[in-house]
Nucleic acid binder design. Structure first.
Lengths: 181, 181
DNA sequence: GTCAACTGCAACATCAATGTTGCAGTAGAG
DNA sequence: CTCTACTGCAACATTGATGTTGCAGTTGAC
């Protein structure tokens, strides 16, 4: 039974993330139905709607944290770390399409975790600036925002592009732009 | 009284757009309170919640359409049209921060209008490709997505950057990228 | 086989949001 | 001034989502 329970829990989280991304006001009933379980089962596992959302966010944060760790943002050469980060984070964005920025306001703990991860990436961008990989006239915060925007775009609007190619596209657009020379 | 009515209506739409952007499930009561009018007044003006949303979308679509017209996307030289479009659309995105893509599913008429506007911009991007302003290996759909992402990013995450400078930043990131040479 | 854990189902209470209506007050147009 | 249009306020009905509980059935662990 433990196995069934874990599988269903995971299914509810993934299904919930998908539906909530399309429509943040999706009802628990709709999520339960889409996950193929009864509404009461979901309520037994998650005390309230908030708890379900927290679990979804936590799952996304766990995945993202693993990607940040494995990308070795502080040790690896900038181009290598960037590509490794992109190739890892794009599947995470696709699996957990929920927008953590606006949906986590009521969850200070998750918000703090998100901030910490955000800071790691910002530090990496700053290193890219310092080491001369970005143009000197570029604001680090703007570079950071551009990178995030490109990731979200390729992840959600081009789900068919596989992660390696998606990472190439993002890195290319980020560094070289799309114009001629 | 007609003047008061029009002013309040406009105020409700703008306030509603702002609150709905932060939280799409914002209640009519919250919108009315934020706009400084009674809940029933909003209901007298908009039959449904749907009607209110439609009005917000329509306002955004009207503004966007004006920008598309004035940018002269089919006649003006690509760089000129691009800059004019950006400088016009960024304030629109800021004034109506609602995400039209996901919130208009239930409104086929607005959806069609949005599609038409989207097509105009895609045509423009295609022209930029054809006239050699974009690299030959760049997919037009990807270029289009990148441009949208950059606009949203500068509009919502950097509200303090004024439209001309914001347009410069976006055009620069779009065409040249942020990397060195 | 027995037990424990889990599930679906039905029924229930609660609550917040929606939408309606009547009434009194107010302000601009004529 | 008077009429019209609008507003706020209070009260009400309705609905959909939330969360709870009891009961019976199922399944895996032991």
């Amino acid at each position: 039974m433990r196995a069934d329970a874990a599988r269903n829990l995971s299914s509810v989280l993934r299904t919930g993330a998908r539906l909530l991304a399309e429509d943040p006001s999706t009802s628990m009933a709709a999520i339960a139905a889409a996950a193929g379980v009864d509404r009461t089962t979901v309520h037994r596992r998650f005390a309230n709607r908030e708890a379900l959302l927290r679990a979804v966010f936590q799952a996304k944060l766990d995945s993202a944290e693993r990607v940040l760790d494995e990308a070795r943002l502080t040790e690896a050469p900038v181009p290598v770390a960037l590509h490794r980060y992109l190739e890892g984070i794009i599947p995470v964005a696709r699996e957990w399409p929920v927008d953590t920025r606006r949906m986590m306001r009521k969850d200070p703990e998750a918000s703090a975790r998100r901030e910490a991860q955000s800071a790691r990436l910002s530090t990496f961008i700053q290193r890219a600036c310092d080491e001369g990989y970005l143009r000197a006239d570029i604001d680090a915060a703007w570079a950071r925002a551009v990178l995030d925007a490109l990731v979200d775009s390729i992840a959600h609007q081009f789900p068919a592009v596989d992660p390696p190619q998606a990472a190439d596209l993002v890195a290319d657009a980020f560094l070289r732009g799309l114009g001629v020379t």
